[in-house]
Design a protein around this nucleic acid. Structure first.
Lengths: 245, 245, 245, 245
DNA sequence: AATGAATGAGTTTTCATTCAT
DNA sequence: TATGAATGAAAACTCATTCAT
């Protein structure tokens, strides 16, 4: 009973709006990480942030806005040095591998915010209206660009259905994360990355060719073939034996 | 007074429990198709089903149970002749193509129920507790089995990471559907099926390299290797000399 | 402390919607009579009506609707036998007197509802949108009709600006009531009625003309008439002659 | 750094209290003109006045006080040369006509402030406590005085119920204004003035009625009285009977 | 079995006002 | 004197669920 909640919290110190905004957002992120959007009350966030409820509304339109802001900042941080990194990487495959790796890693590390975006955004039309969607577009655009680059460079198939590929990759990652979040299906970021990349690049078919060891790459293989050919021609001349033509 | 005058709102006829259950569920499916789970009230469903609200609770635990039942029946109908069909198809690739095609088709045709499962299941832990998840397991199991079969028959890679492949396929389809539902991104079932299958089987790499360089196939290469072998053997016999340096 | 508010109000007896509606409205009228619209809470009304707050919302859209309903019923009761009564009265002046008298009386007797309509309707555009305004139109129409009748019968001036007269009468009564309600300026219904009617019919001018000319009053005139009568009588006796034509 | 660089939001220049008060009030009047009392926030007024919210509370007790001040100044301006003008007019009817005309004109011209007084003052007891009421007394007193004067001079009826007349006039004008403000019922100041004055002075009765009953007019009545008198006198002479003198 | 009247918990949001700086 | 960040009380409303009839 008398745990004496002497909260007696009286008028929080006057801070700069920036500081206060940041404090509240941090508190919100904290609370939102713990429970679903609907199960969180503004009162709790206010308490966590050590301000009055009204103060929150000075800085954020409403509960939803606050949540959106939390997610936005997360996205921003995810995007921040992302493009830069991807740009620094050579080759479509490398880029794609990095993007997938990084995506899996970000989501796993911020599982709580993933949960928030699942519970807070109604996964419906609401999401597509939100700024989060815009961020997401930006985010996935990097992947799309990498694909385009790969196509241009000849590394990837000319007829690659990029939007579908994007859905496959990000949808697939989504499923992995959801399983991880809500169905305790753990996963290893590196392993999963390799598996996805492997799947995408090699396909799922048995590639008999690939299994012939010795040959390190197809380029080498063709080089070898050429050298064989020359060698054979010369050998034919030398020996006077018809090479079978 | 006389028989002709009956109360306008007649007490719902006493039906068999099965009939009643079915009526209510049908009404629920109808209403749920139109609006999000949270925007639908039991009262509406009762009205649509022409029963009193209380009656619904005689046949269903609660609103959520009713929704689950609706989705369950949908899943059941989706699964019904599904396994049978898949079984009748020969070859992993064919099976997988059929599964993907059918999945896309089912979801697109029942977009309203997809919407329901997005709005009604909180996409969270709740989903994994529901029987819907069980149905889903069963559903995706068909895919997993097809993959296993493909591996066994040598059609698919031995080291295929099946769970991940499943996530990729079903996660990808999910994204396509979500885009279709909430972001008016239309798609053609056949085209998308081909694209997904193409992606999975061929991978995303250019196969070009192999084909453009002299060597038209691995068979040719082995021919060459054979001839070379013979040549070398002969050369060895002739000169005991170094093969051409 | 332990005044033991054992309200333990458990599930009000099941009543017919009509009865319940009426009960709630009565309670609302009671509470609204005591305090201004904004100072009344639904909780209070619910308590007074001995129902749960939610029950109120079963029967009324919202707080405002409830208030409107209270006022509407008041208006209805005011109008009920009103027209009938007015119709039964002969002569514009009599009708108008009755209307004013009745209006003053109704308002004074239902001062509390007057207060409600002052505090609940924002006196602004909102009022003109409300059904109350419609009732009021109906109510004042009786007055307008009486005036028209008076004009038709020649009892009232042909060029009477009826709308303005209506504003004057009902606006004036309003002021009287407001003074009574909020400024403890009591008034007597009969006296005020006479004064208003007097004002309207006689105007405010001194009927100087009448008084300045010989005849100081009708009493004098009748005196003369009496004396004249006697004279004529006597003359008749004297002469049997026609009285002076 | 150097003087040139000043903070964009410059601290409001230190003005004389009078100037500041006036600025704030002007801003308040502006904002209050646009929207109802409840729909206006102190923040807005502060913004309009280019001061901080707190500053307003340095000069005004609270929001209501500020509104009252706005209305007070309006009343003051309405009253300013009012008494003077009325004094300069001769005759009760002329004075009354001028008062009504001016009142209608003022209200119509300042419709926005009328609206404010309807939305800001709760039309209830609150009003009668406010200084606005005092101003109103002063304002209507001019009318009352004009009436008294008219009575004294014999221009108006001795038994004129002045308070009621005042209620009728100002209540009537109120109704006209309210209809104009909230029910788009336009009116012409001059016409309405004439109608009101006409109504008050001539009354609403056909002056004909007096004449239709035997006596066609009061003038005729006095003629008749005179003729009676003469007749009587002559009759007296004829008969030798003393007529009672 | 069917009804449908009754329930009531639970939370966001506003904005006039205060007061530390 | 001016600021503007911080306050916090207060209440309407919903609707899934219950249970007396």
């Amino acid at each position: 009973m008398n745990k004496a909640i002497t909260t007696t919290r009286r008028r929080a110190k006057r801070l700069s709006p920036e500081q206060r905004t940041s404090d509240i957002e941090k508190a919100a992120r904290q609370i939102f990480s713990e429970r679903d959007y609907d199960d969180v009350s503004i009162a709790e966030i206010a308490a966590e942030a050590n301000v009055a409820e009204g103060t929150i509304y000075k800085y954020f339109e409403n509960k939803r806005d606050l949540m959106i802001k939390v997610l936005e900042h997360w996205y921003q941080s995810m995007i921040s040095d992302y493009i830069e990194h991807v740009d620094a990487i050579q080759g479509a495959q490398n880029k794609i591998r990095y993007i997938i790796w990084r995506h899996l890693k970000s989501l796993k590390e911020n599982a709580d915010l993933c949960r928030l975006s699942y519970s807070g955004l109604k996964n419906t039309a609401e999401y597509f209206d939100s700024s989060i969607y815009e961020y997401n577009r930006e985010y996935t655009k990097v992947f799309v660009d990498a694909c385009r680059e790969g196509i241009a460079s000849g590394e990837l198939r000319q007829d690659l259905p990029i939007p579908l590929l994007r859905d496959l990759v990000f949808g697939g990652v989504d499923h992995i994360i959801v399983g991880f979040l809500f169905n305790q299906r753990d996963f290893d970021v590196n392993t999963s990355t390799e598996q996805i990349v492997g799947l995408l690049f090699k396909g799922i078919e048995t590639r008999a060719d690939l299994e012939t060891k010795k040959v390190e790459s197809l380029e080498q293989l063709s080089d070898l073939a050429e050298r064989f050919q020359k060698l054979l021609d010369r050998a034919d001349q030398l020996s006077g034996v018809d090479s079978g033509r």
